[in-house]
Amino acid sequence: MPIEIPKDKWPGSVRQVVLGATAAEGGTRTSKVVVGGETCMPFMHFEGAIPNRPVVALEIRDRRPDDWSPLLVKTWENVIDDPAAWAKAAEEVGADAIQLTLSLTDSAGQPMSPETAVATVKAVLQASGLPLIVFGPGQSEVDNLLLVAVAEATKGERLALGICEDKNYRTIVATAMANDHVITARSPMDVNLAKQLNILISDMGLPLDRVIMDPTTGALGYGIEYGYSVMERLRLAALQGDAMTQLPMLVTPGYEAWKTKESKVGEGVPESWGDWLQRAINWETMTAIALLEAGANILVLRHPESLKQVEAAIQDLMTAPDMVSV
């Protein structure tokens, strides 16, 4: 008996955003990343087009992080003190992009200077040809200080700059406009706040094809359903034609998953929790894949093994099944 599959037809689509500029476009990247463009809900290939697959970025730090799980430190031990080498290593294990987070202080405990930040970013750009996403430490004033310097020193590379939120968006947007970069607009898990920030950004004159939104999320077991629901609603609104939500989404499951107890703690936990490393990787992978299903376009991870598994999942999900034979 033939089964008729109900299909949704959407009037809207997600904007396409390009990260990274090659030499021909005025940058030095050897590859670029194109995200967005879908005209249907995630992986509903039979309802619309998904022209660009979701991509995975690996997070690196400008110096040895103070608060990372020992498991991660061990994994990256050989490169953890050298962001350039770290970036290269991340490229070698198959990341589509690099996400560099700048620290609040340098390893000596002094406030991070714009000069050091610029030197680090330049070293990373030199070491890896992948598109680069640069996040400040997450305090708006420091973010402004560091990111403006970074943006000016890397004009034309089409970096993605973050964290751009309602407190500091003007500064980050202005510098992105002046230096031809992309921004990631972060809002705290709320559809309306995400939309409002996008409106404010677009009011400043930054074309929306240079904006990625970061709706924020939680890890598996730590509020992921809330984040999932916000992303799903953002995507539904985008497909319904709301221009101010039609932006690709970036989320940071690596950051979220690796701060959970399940990933951080190896001792004094029930035996039934199983192998620590395996558990931590599973946690990161499961978080990431759930967000993939919610509509994420860029996933930022921390562990190379999770990267491998998520990449495999993406490959699977992007293979459109032949619906006739189902």
Binding site: R170, V173, A174, T175, A178
Partner: peptide, 8 residues
């Protein structure tokens, strides 16, 4: 210019 744009 940035300071004028961001209001500082």
């Amino acid at each position: 210019g940035i300071q004028l744009v961001d209001g500082r």
